[in-house]
């Protein structure tokens, strides 16, 4: 549905996006993950035809964004980081206006407005001026605007930024409900969002793709082995001995103990799920099992691992004090 090939965007000497390639299949939700200033917004602006790429190609719904921009734009819904709202219009006037310029046929417009208002739960505020709405409602009007023409592709730039926790949950639910009919790209720098809403992740850092794959896949790829945490009540030495004998287990390390209750960290071979066997071994030995969970490296860890490495080598951080000194010298 979306193909991005060797996309590059230069602002003068600065390289905002450098040789980015990825694909999104129909119906997928792709998470675009990266720190602020990584090039997420620039990539999205290129995909929506707002900015021309310096180099490379992007195809949206089968149309090249540089060669047939109007056709591509007809099939794309876009929510920029700041929802593009006209504060003096009522939500109804606004949706009608956007529907018209997005090419919704006149006879369908009213029905479409009703549908998106229902889907985004903004029916109650349709008559109110957008400038008087709360941030959560404005965000939802922004999403309603993006789907008014029922686009095949939906591009959402930080859709949950600046919302309160309840609004964030509602917005995520809304995005998930849209996933079936639309192919979605959403950008975020908030990690849990990705594992909660996306099928696939592209981690972008300093304008380059740092990693790509399903959230679980990324977990797996970056770990040497799988780690399971078990909390058991029973004789420590026997437990270690028994668990060590479970097929696939490399190492059992005691972690912490609270009374007779102890937690062990168990390292298994990569790609080997030993959780069922562990549980069986413990229960058959008549010990009390309190907790058993994988302790994969969280997306948070992966993200930091992928992005901080480069940042620490960045010479820019050294430039800041110099500038400060210069200013002090001039003064």
């Amino acid at each position: 549905m979306i193909q991005v090939e060797h996309l590059t965007k230069r602002y003068g000497p600065t390289l905002a996006v450098s040789d980015v390639s990825f694909e999104v299949q129909k119906g997928e939700v792709l998470g675009f993950l990266g720190p602020n200033g990584a090039g997420k917004t620039t990539t999205m602006r290129i995909l929506t035809g707002f900015l021309p790429p310096t180099d490379g190609r992007a195809r949206v719904a089968g149309y090249d964004i540089s060669e047939s921009p109007i056709e591509a734009k007809k099939r794309t819904g876009y929510l920029p980081e700041n929802p593009p709202l006209y504060p003096e219009m009522t939500a109804r006037e606004y949706l009608a206006f956007v529907g018209k310029i997005k090419g919704v046929p006149r006879r369908d417009l009213k029905a479409r407005m009703g549908e998106v208002a229902e889907k985004c739960a903004i029916e109650d505020v349709l008559h109110r001026p957008i400038g008087k709405l709360s941030k959560g409602y404005r965000q939802r009007v922004g999403i309603a605007q993006a789907i008014i023409h029922n686009p095949e592709v939906l591009i959402l730039d930080e859709p949950t930024a600046g919302l309160d926790p309840k609004q964030i949950i509602e917005t995520r639910q809304l995005i998930r409900s849209l996933a079936g009919q639309h192919t979605v790209i959403l950008s975020t720098h908030i990690l849990p969002e990705v594992s909660k809403t996306c099928n696939r992740v592209v981690v972008i850092n300093q304008g380059k793709v740092a990693a790509a794959g399903a959230p679980d896949e990324l977990n797996l790829r970056l770990q040497g082995f799988e780690t399971v945490l078990v909390t058991v009540e029973g004789p420590a030495a026997e437990i270690i001995d028994r668990l060590q004998r479970v097929a696939g287990v490399n190492l059992v390390e005691p972690r912490e103990s609270a009374g007779a209750r102890m937690t062990f960290e168990i390292h298994a071979e990569k790609g080997n799920d030993v959780r069922a066997e562990l549980a069986r071994a413990i229960v058959e030995s008549q010990w009390n099992l309190y907790e058993l969970k994988t302790s994969g490296m969280s997306l948070e860890d992966i993200f930091l691992k992928l992005t901080t490495r480069d940042l620490s080598e960045e010479p820019d951080s050294a430039a800041a004090p110099d500038l400060g000194q210069q200013l002090a010298g001039e003064a």
């Binding site: 602006r45 929506t48 035809g49 707002f50 109007i70 056709e71 734009k73 007809k74 794309t76 876009y78 920029p80 700041n82 593009p84 709202l85 006209y86 504060p87 956007v98 310029i101 997005k102 090419g103 605007q145």
Partner: peptide, 14 residues
């Protein structure tokens, strides 16, 4: 200023 230019320029209008 309000960023609505982004809406206009990403809509299928010339």
């Amino acid at each position: 200023k309000t960023g609505t230019i982004e809406l206009l320029l990403t809509s299928p209008v010339s």
